[in-house]
Design a protein around this nucleic acid. Structure first.
Lengths: 144, 144
DNA sequence: AGCCTCCTGCAACTGACTTGCAGGAGGGGC
DNA sequence: GCCCCTCCTGCAAGTCAGTTGCAGGAGGCT
């Protein structure tokens, strides 16, 4: 059993535990999400899901993505000017850099920034529910 | 002449210099933008503009907002699950905190975070074109 | 004042989702 | 293993925010 198979099983268990039926369509989408190493949008996920479960409709993909997000097993990202992109939640917390030329998405994390964010909010009497930080970047001249 | 009148004049000048005609519709919208102390969306801006120039259409508001953004005289923000919100660009650079309960938008800025962002991008061989950082927050218990 | 453009309002369109509906299929209970 | 209740699905139609084609209207240079 591969690492992504195990991930698929954990995702399925989370859903069954929440009383959500594992249909063939949902199983196909979970497989696709567990396999994905990138940040695909709904249409791309649908394209990949059709390969495993021909006939699955785009509305089922949208409905299932919404349910999966509600269960916290996937994250939804809304980058500038794009359709929403998704990734399974079995990753360490991280933020995103988007290469504005290639569209490539790079993950990163900074404890120091997170700490400063918390501090700034606290100074104004707030606590952070969640945050969004995206760096739109370009390869430096002479690199890449 | 008030501060916002002066701001309106600067905005108009920026447009004329870019070869963009100052029509009555655009003048009305510039007035509204110069006056706004909050972060209104297109529909709210249209509502306010109608008070100064009855008959101005929503599509003209959208078209003008796009042009103003291209000229760099206003900024567009796409907060989670909301229509785009706008503010004139005559402010110091800042990021936003959104109170998830009241919808209130609070501006803040952290040089230390900006510095860390630049550093993280540089370490991966990138330079930042622009960034987006939003903190979704809630008033701490016992405050507010 | 004349005239060339660019701008405007209207209505129709787009893209990304969302939803109503009637038929279909999980999966617990037997 | 089969039943049956309920939830899920595909389809088509709808929604929401924003965009665009068009024909008439108005800046602003001369």
């Amino acid at each position: 059993m591969t690492a992504t198979d195990q991930r698929t099983d954990r995702l399925k268990k989370a859903l069954r535990d929440a009383g959500i039926r594992i249909t063939r369509q949902r199983a196909a989408l979970l497989d696709v999400l567990a396999d994905a190493e990138d940040h695909p949008d709904a249409v791309e996920l649908h394209r990949r899901a059709v390969a495993r479960m021909p006939g699955i409709s785009l509305s089922t993909v949208y409905r299932t993505l919404t349910a999966l997000e509600e269960q916290g097993v996937i994250h939804r990202h809304q980058f500038e000017g794009d359709a929403a992109r998704f990734e399974h939640a079995e990753t360490e917390h991280h933020d995103h850099m988007i290469d504005v030329e290639s569209g490539e998405v790079i993950e990163f994390c900074s404890d120091r920034i997170e700490h400063l964010q918390k501090q700034i909010a606290a100074e104004l009497g707030y606590e952070i529910v969640h945050h969004r930080m995206e760096l739109y970047v370009r390869k430096k001249a002479g690199e890449g």
